[in-house]
């Protein structure tokens, strides 16, 4: 059977969130396609992570373990994935759009001459009728992504090539475990015939990987809080909305000075300059030192109980009201309206 395989990324002995998000999405797609969801796990002493993958619906974990595979390296990891995909012929293969996934997936897709769509924001199953050949395709993977600097949304398909490959950024898909683990098995990959010495030509001399560091500059959506949010505790509402939207948290200087948010999140003249697709300013008055860092955002929504707050002048949508009422309503509305 042609199944779905999700590449599982690990960090510090844990499965990366993005991989679990892809497992959750993969499960939904597998249900629609009536096929199985499987995982590809590569590393050193990682077999115990399979239990968690079963909890996310994997019916099989393809496992490649070796001390030389402790850290990700392009050549051996891609050789394993290529060999597995050649023998298993998955119809869909998903990767996180991380430093690793964006290094690995293109190499694999090139070797298999299958197509690859980067940074998808949505994955759906649908049919396609080729206007030129008149050919009908059933149950293709629609790979939906913004393109052209976010100014268009493109739906990409790979009608003739398998696997249909896509990468997705962290936080774009939801992560949800099953109540009860799937009845899964581990299938060990024999790496001896796959790998040879030349696959280890790139040597890692030094690695210095820190715990997650805050960097909001690249975020496509930012939910920013100001002094009006009132407390660090109350910032949790912003984090909840941001998590749903796949957004980063920004802050005004007054909020940072008050200790509500980390300095790395400060937007403005003495903070970072951002230009996201959407900026939601919550309890921020909109002083020039703040707006200098965000007024080029493609869309600005403000939430402020002062109808005359300067932020309203640059906002595309100015919601006049108490943020403590508005935020829960936004969270509720998002959950209700998103498919």
């Amino acid at each position: 059977m042609n199944n779905i395989i999700v590449y599982i990324e690990t960090e510090n002995g844990k499965i990366a969130d993005v991989s679990l998000e892809l497992m959750t999405k993969g499960r939904e797609l597998a249900n629609k396609l009536n096929c199985n969801l499987e995982a590809l796990l590569i590393g050193d002493k990682v077999s115990h992570l399979s239990e968690e993958l079963f909890l996310y619906g994997a019916t099989k974990v393809h496992l490649a373990e070796d001390s030389r595979l402790e850290f990700y390296r392009t050549l051996p990891y891609s050789a394993i994935a290529i060999s597995l995909f050649k023998s298993e012929k998955p119809q869909i293969a998903l990767f996180g759009a991380t430093s690793i996934g964006r290094d690995l997936a293109p190499r694999v897709s090139s070797a298999l001459t299958s197509g690859l769509t980067a940074d998808c924001t949505s994955l759906e199953i649908g049919d396609h009728n080729d206007a030129k050949s008149g050919k009908e395709y059933k149950d293709l993977l629609y790979q939906i992504r913004p393109a052209f600097g976010g100014n268009i949304i493109a739906t990409i398909i790979n009608p003739e090539h398998r696997p249909q490959m896509a990468t997705v950024r962290e936080g774009v898909m939801k992560k949800m475990a099953l109540q009860q683990a799937a009845n899964g098995e581990i299938s060990k990959i024999d790496i001896k015939p796959i790998l040879n010495d030349s696959d280890f030509v790139v040597e890692i001399i030094k690695r210095d990987i820190q715990e997650r560091k805050i960097d909001i500059k690249g975020a496509s959506i930012i939910v920013a809080g100001g002094f009006g949010v009132g407390s660090k505790e109350n910032f949790k509402q912003l984090f909840e909305l941001a998590h749903l939207l796949g957004a980063e948290i920004g802050a005004s200087r007054a909020a940072v000075d008050a200790g509500f948010a980390d300095h790395a999140r400060q937007v403005g003249q003495t903070g970072v300059t951002v230009r996201p697709k959407l900026y939601i300013a919550v309890g921020i008055s909109g002083q020039i030192q703040h707006t200098a860092g965000m007024d080029q955002s493609a869309m600005i929504i403000s939430i402020n109980n002062d109808p005359n707050a300067p932020i309203n002048n640059i906002a595309d949508y100015a919601i006049v009201g108490d943020l403590n009422e508005v935020l829960p309503r936004m969270i509720k509305s998002y959950k209700k309206n998103i498919k």
Binding site: T113, S114, G115, L116, T117, H128, Y142, Q143, P146, G150, N151, I152, I153, A154, T155, I156, I157, N158, P159, E160, H161, A298, M299, P307, N312, N313, I314, A315, D316, Y317, A318, I319, V320, G321, D322, E325, V326, R329, K332, S333
Partner: peptide, 26 residues
């Protein structure tokens, strides 16, 4: 030589730039 095909392109339509006032109502 291209396995990927573009099925559909949607232009993002940006809303008019004057700001819209909304209330806090559901």
């Amino acid at each position: 030589g291209s396995p990927t095909k573009v099925k559909k392109i949607e232009n993002i339509v940006f809303q008019a730039k004057e700001s819209k006032r909304l209330s806090a109502s559901e």
